[in-house]
Design a protein around this nucleic acid. Structure first.
Lengths: 186, 186
DNA sequence: ATCACTTTTTACCAAATGGTAAATGTTTTC
DNA sequence: GAAAACATTTACCATTTGGTAAAAAGTGAT
């Protein structure tokens, strides 16, 4: 659980008691490769920290293609930004995963006992959204080769752990195109 | 200022005193078409509400093309998600604008006197980021025609107020392509 | 090692988009 | 209202990407 606390401490200070409070509410769990953490149509009201592994968030467009919206990897927190609304996306384990989970209720109640909790949480998720937005922004305005190179920069340690087809669906191209691009880069 | 208060009230309750507190810190200002609200390299520490007009946020990619990251229009709040860091983007008025401005300091101090202020603010900006992310997501995975049609849905009342070249740079295509697409749709 | 299964690479042609340049249309300024 | 400045459309061809299909490479189970 050290990783989680270190992660949170980047966004604000906590004393030992407060850290205890947080850890008391945490539950560890695991996912196998290809398992779903959550599926479109369901709701999920949890806050999740990835100790190990990679998740991908994807949906289907009108043509029926799988579109990968983003990946989340080790040492990142995430939750459902659309609180009680049913999900429109699938959240799937790309590799085996170890997760730490909080119920949204427990997570929010921490603001009763930890001053600044709301501010810390705000910073954490604000940063997460910002990163996702910035990464996706450049996907629109560049050609496929550039997009792939930027993907390599943005997710340097994910490349060899994710099937090519997922990366292609993240970049908005076919896997054939991505394969061709890889070939031309070398 | 009514519009601003109504906007905030969508995200939480405020009594009359609290509304007063907020309005006391607000300053009105105007921008002319093509004026810059902020430029890359500068910092900006304000929270802005658009009473009238449209702003666009853009940057330059490696090739030197202007890339429009997003538009912000009437009745939306925004601030700089990268607090004290220098901007990498330009914020420009697409039309004449009327704005309400808070200094970041004043804005944040409201949390001393308004319980739940942090939570309300969190919700507001979370929603803003979510919208931007969702809108950009679909830009990656669809062809140019579909992207343009989605733009029309997402920003129905902006289409005729924004030059075609800005829309094209938002969609990640050339203005020639967009012109061709427009022609084919009719 | 072999088979079944999945993932990645190739190949071919069709379709979409980009680059350059010019023509047309619209707005602003004097 | 003419000239200048700016925005949009059109046209031509080059390049990139997609669609379909098949081959090759990789993986896991027996």
């Amino acid at each position: 659980m050290k990783e989680l606390i270190e992660h949170i401490l980047q966004f604000g200070n906590l004393n030992k008691q407060q850290i205890e409070l947080i850890l008391n509410k945490a539950t560890e769990t695991e996912l196998r490769k290809d398992d779903y953490f959550a599926e479109a149509g369901s709701t999920f009201n949890q806050v999740v920290f990835i100790l190990e592994g990679i998740l991908r968030i994807y949906y289907y467009n009108k043509k029926g293609d799988e579109i990968t919206k983003y990946f989340i990897d080790e040492n990142h927190l995430f939750s459902n930004p659309y609180k009680d609304e049913p999900l429109t996306e699938y959240i799937q384990a790309v590799t085996d995963c170890k997760l730490i989970i909080f119920s949204k209720k427990d997570w929010d109640e921490l603001s009763d006992t930890i001053i600044d909790w709301d501010k810390i949480v705000h910073k954490i998720f604000q940063k997460g959204m910002r990163e996702k937005l910035d990464r996706r922004s450049s996907l629109v305005s560049e050609d496929a080769t550039t997009r792939y190179l930027e993907f390599l920069e943005n997710y340097p340690n994910l490349t060899n752990r994710i099937p090519l087809s997922y990366i292609a669906s993240y970049l908005g191209i076919t896997q054939q195109s991505l394969s061709r691009i890889r070939k031309n880069i070398r």
